[in-house]
Design a protein around this nucleic acid. Structure first.
Lengths: 252, 252
DNA sequence: CCCGTTCTTGCACGTTTCTGCATGTATCGT
DNA sequence: ACGATACATGCAGAAACGTGCAAGAACGGG
């Protein structure tokens, strides 16, 4: 591995996970921690990261350049996105829902991951423009501006023509009794249509969604494979879900 | 192996695997590392790669990206976009092509214009998110990353289901004999399909496009209604077009 | 056909850069 | 305060680098 390449890798890691742990990276890349430390020192000298004890953090968002600016998702969403991105297998096909959390997943995908991404969200399509190895398929339809996704009959029909291994579903409410809910009926229908086209459906739920419910039911728990959240797994709501057979993937 | 051939090989390698390791290439091609280094040095001098210790990397896509993304539309494109936006009638339906000029049109549309916009460009869909009165319809399909538009069979099929008053067509070349041209065959086919669905087709051509031609023909002049450009209307190329019955809308 | 020129290529040499280890110091958590 | 961990520094071997040089090929003019 080239030294400069390693440097790029560090920067990408920083943008994707929001932090770097020197020890982990050294082990992952099979190089000494000294080299990682040296790289981090250099990057910090160029103002590209902030050196901290044990690793590095992104430079404060105010100073950060344009590239990272758009990837400023709240910490919780980024953690969820990072774990969810790990569910996407190389060569696999994933349906990415709309919403800010799903957008964070798009940003969290390794830049050179070879996979197929199906989405009905134009912002996600735009975010994936610089993933050269990702084959992106956009589901057309009427643009629902509130969520920045396409929906309606045309979109639902387009969804019937695709299949995927995985659907990463964003919702606005996750509640033991109310189930998975969202604020728009059409949007809910679209999510249902997408879930029906994927072998597995994982729900993206940053902590603020847990225990809340919105107006329209999306899916029953039985049709989901699991839930990715940064909320403490010992939270009563999550424990109740786990008892009901929902696989909870912690993103702490 | 010819020197120029070797150079091409290096560039292709760079594009394919995102990096070049001098030692590996030298062994693979059976030449000395010195020659590889010399080639890389030359390529770097031409700005075709970035030289690093041990090999080379592509010119940072980040630099290109941000440059293009950040740079507000050049003056010419903005003038063209402004005039073209004026062609959109309240309550009317317009098909907006992809490309930076069409994106400028989206930005130039009055924020509360009530109209229907059909597009196969995710960035344009995103740009129209804050036009509350605009009904936006996205044509889905495989995402062609170079132009940031959807194309392919699915997109062409989706195009068959819409109709519009107006198609604002972006091209890369406007030439009296070669006609309207663009750099990608699929993209050209998509533009043709869109032109067939609109009553009128107006070409968006900022001055640098006038008199140039690209690889693939899009449309004959007969199927266009007019041309919007900021180039001096007395330009010989434009006068020749006008003689052939093309309506030239000046955007000076 | 011959000769001089130019360009390319590989080799040799000295220099720079990188990397991992060892050492001693600073910092963190308990 | 203490041990554990992370850190900076110095060092040595290895790898990559630039440069100069010479052999060979391609080319053009006489």
């Amino acid at each position: 591995m080239l030294a400069a390449e390693r440097r790029d890798h560090l920067l990408e890691l920083l943008a994707r996970q929001g932090k770097i742990v020197a020890k982990e990276v050294a082990a992952e890349l099979g190089i000494s921690e000294d080299s990682v430390r040296r790289d981090l020192r250099d990057l910090a000298a160029e103002g590209l990261c902030q050196r901290v004890y044990g690793g590095a953090l992104p430079v404060s968002p105010a100073v950060v350049d344009y590239g990272a600016r758009q990837s400023v998702a709240p910490d919780g969403k980024r953690k969820v996105a990072s774990v969810a991105a790990g569910l996407v297998r190389p060569g696999g096909t994933v349906i990415l829902d709309g919403g800010t959390t799903a957008l964070a997943v798009a940003h969290a995908l390794p830049r050179d991951l070879a996979c197929t991404v199906i989405t009905h969200s134009p912002p996600i399509a735009v975010a994936l423009l610089d993933h050269p190895q990702a084959e992106v398929f956009v589901l057309g339809g009427r643009l629902f501006k509130h969520s920045a996704v396409t929906c309606g009959a045309a979109a639902a029909e387009a969804a019937q023509n695709v299949s995927a291994d995985l659907f990463l579903l964003g919702v606005t409410g996750v509640h033991p009794e109310a189930g998975l809910t969202t604020g728009d009926a059409e949007d809910a229908a679209m999510k249902r249509a997408l879930a029906a086209r994927a072998a597995d459906t994982y729900v993206l739920a940053s902590s603020e969604k847990i225990g809340t419910a919105s107006r329209f039911r999306v899916l029953p728990w039985a049709e989901t494979s699991g839930l990715v959240t940064d909320k403490d797994p010992h939270d009563p709501v999550l424990e109740q879900l786990a008892e009901n057979g929902v696989e909870v993937l912690p993103a702490g």
